[in-house]
Design a protein around this nucleic acid. Structure first.
Lengths: 262, 262
DNA sequence: CGCAGACTTGACAACCCTCAATTATTGTGG
DNA sequence: CCACAATAATTGAGGGTTGTCAAGTCTGCG
């Protein structure tokens, strides 16, 4: 039987595997698990205090299949989401239908900041694997109750951080050549995998070349060519979506070097 | 005598002009004015209630001269700022010294979101004209007192909005040709001037071509050439930093058209 | 008046996009 | 289980947009 662990490659708390396996047979979007405030605080690395540990509030989880759309621009935003397992992409579609990939959220990332302003989502959230999300109602962190204080503060920190991260992407798209962008992309993916306890040397990308290109401001052909170039130089190995980083120092060098000829 | 109004081109509440004029002779960074919570709420368009109107809390103002640096990366972040008058730029400098212009804050804009995460600013804030800022201590909006509730909520909305705005810049830098970027830039500046009650047809840019180029991911030469091209086509008139928009519909068209030949 | 900084304009080359063909992979139905 | 279609990825050729380098003009300021 296929469990969520096998589907997404996520390490799951042993105590939960049985549950995850059992509930995998239930229909999509059926609530399966509920997290405590304490679990939420731990996932987001927020300092705990005693009142939090005993809080009775519970957060609903939702599960969804590869390729499913969690929300689209214009959808009402009552809640934001924390990725519990799996891989996703967020994108923005302009009025002519052009899509721009914005982020690739993974475990522990918070998704939905784009909906807070107008109480409507502005972007689109799509699952790149089978996923599990924790639902945090907007009312929860606007409330004055004590359990929301640390969470709210952390959310503001994460928004601030997301803002700065976006500014780095702007810089990258404005000034760096294609090779430096792809190298930075690989290194940042690698680092996220390490942070989640996976190998940072070999992994497989869940997104297509087109998604990567859109994210980096390049065409899919340029992404493909650049990866092939890296492979030819012995920096990485590539086999379709599987990537092995051979020389991470070499990739780091690339970020500021003028160019790399074959 | 030169008042702040003349320096920055800002409309100032008549009751304040005398004060502004008088204090202009005081040394830089000397606190001159204090805003009430009510004034702050009005500036940020937050809904008022009675407890706010009578709140005794006061926000300090700071004034600074053209070219002065308000904060730099690494500076401790105890407060964020609301632009009361004048024009500024924010930028991010990477470890090799390359600067990327991020925003051009104007009256009513909130500056300093980049410092909330680590309690240290990550960017640099520089005055493009003589300016006046309202200082809002971070502790103010983290507090549980009633006057902070609406403000905090609004700040989260503004951060959400800033995040989405940054994503649109990413899209622009990744896909649009130089002409479309410059056209969008002019239109957005024009709109901000209109929102402040100034002419949206003719204005003068406070930033250099290099700043614009950095903001849009172009070189200063490309910006200059593109502006000259617009001028040749009768879309705008250009005289150094003075811009007159002749055909704003023409500029709007440019945003999705393939190219514009001379 | 002279200087420094900002802006304009030109020539050329490089990088990357567009178009196109081929191969690999995944999913579907007989 | 295999054939077939659809999607994804690779690779090549050619051209266009924009960056680089360079020279010259304009503006403001001491």
């Amino acid at each position: 039987m296929q469990t969520l662990q096998q589907i997404s490659g996520e390490p799951v708390d042993p105590a939960m595997i049985v549950d995850v396996g059992r509930i995998a047979r239930l229909p999509d979007n059926f609530p399966r698990l509920w997290s405590t405030v304490e679990q939420l605080y731990k996932l987001l690395k927020i300092e705990l205090d005693e009142t939090i540990v005993n809080d009775a509030y519970r957060f609903q989880h939702i599960k969804s299949r590869t390729g499913s759309r969690i929300y689209s621009a214009g959808d009402r935003c009552d809640a934001i989401f924390i990725v519990y397992a799996g891989f996703l992409k967020t994108s923005w579609v302009d009025k002519y239908g052009n899509e721009k990939i914005l982020e690739f959220p993974m475990k522990g990332d918070v998704v939905g900041f784009d909906g807070i302003d107008l109480k409507q989502f502005r972007n689109t959230l799509v699952a790149l694997s089978d996923i599990e999300l924790i639902v945090v109602p907007v009312d929860f962190f606007h409330s004055n109750s004590s359990h929301a204080y640390g969470f709210r503060r952390r959310i503001m920190e994460l928004m601030s951080n997301a803002l700065v991260a976006g500014q780095k992407i702007e810089y990258m798209m404005g000034t760096l050549p294609a090779e430096a962008r792809v190298a930075k992309f690989l290194l940042s993916i690698s680092q996220k995998f390490r942070a989640m306890g996976f190998s940072d040397k070999s992994f497989h990308l869940r997104m297509t070349r087109e998604d990567i290109g859109s994210y980096l401001g390049l065409t899919l052909e340029t992404v493909s060519r650049t990866l092939s170039g890296f492979s030819r130089c012995g920096l990485i190995r590539v086999d379709q979506k599987f990537i092995e980083i051979v020389d991470s120092d070499g990739l780091k060098m690339l970020r500021r070097l003028p160019s790399l000829k074959r």
